[in-house]
Amino acid sequence: MRHSTRIAVGPVQFRIGSDWAAPIAALDRLYAGYPQDEARPADATVRLFAARPWRRWLRPSVHIGGDFVVPDALPLPLSMGLLAAEMGMNLQVALGWRRHMLLHASAVAKDGRALIMSGESGSGKSTLAALLGEGDWRLMGDEFTLIDPASGDALAFPRAVSLKNEAIAAVAARVDVARLGPLLAGTPKGDIRHLIPRADAIAAMHEPARPALLLFPRFGGEASIEPMGEGEAFVRLTEASTNYVALGEAGFAALTRLVRETPAFGISYPDGAAGIALVEQLWADAAR
């Protein structure tokens, strides 16, 4: 393809090709601090392309392709090329990665132990992870957490954090503007702005962490904590995993082990500060 770049996030080496220069330039800026290995073959390929040659210039719209394709995925305008790249990368990992059990969950770590937060979009798992990652936690990822079936450890996937809507202002107030991507206003997912993880989180991205606490956050309502049984946590995590079935017995073993060894809670919280307070309280118990 005309323009391309290579990005390594956690264990995944991406190759991203584009019919336009802009999305690649934007990616290169966001991922400039990530380790580069130009000779490493790609595990996953993302293509950003124009459906017809003239659509590169005329009302340019970005189609998302690659190793795996969602047939009815709608194209995005070129101004949202960075979002298209992010969606393409997510898609390839979600559908193609087989080495680890993939959880649609954010994670942060402290002292080699991981807090994993799983929830639908809108649950605030991404924002909580971003806020914790600006404190004394290591951000492991805002979207995917990988579980190594052999060891049971959590592995990081610290892509650029995708901040949405109100979370943008909440996080932007606390970080150097150089760590923020361009504001993508009015996307199908609302306003989006990417946050480059802290350098220490990127440097530590290959360090595994032992799962110590599983949270299922829900944004809104009074602050509350609900202990969750192993069975329910198991069901929720199968639903949060894109490759649980494909991993066969290895996935089954990894997931039963995870829910047995890791205390799980559902939490509700009215705002970020309350959410952080609940997390720290539960962590203090779990880490004891």
């Binding site: 080496q13 490493r40 073959p41 595990d43 990665w97 087989r98 080495r99 079935v245 494909a246 991993l247 066969g248 290895a250």
Partner: peptide, 21 residues
């Protein structure tokens, strides 16, 4: 094979065994 290709291929063989079953 380059190590990362060998690892990717091992993943593929394992996944294919599950799919076959």
């Amino acid at each position: 094979l380059p190590p990362t290709v060998a690892a990717l291929f091992a993943d593929q063989r394992a996944a294919a065994a599950v799919a076959r079953q």
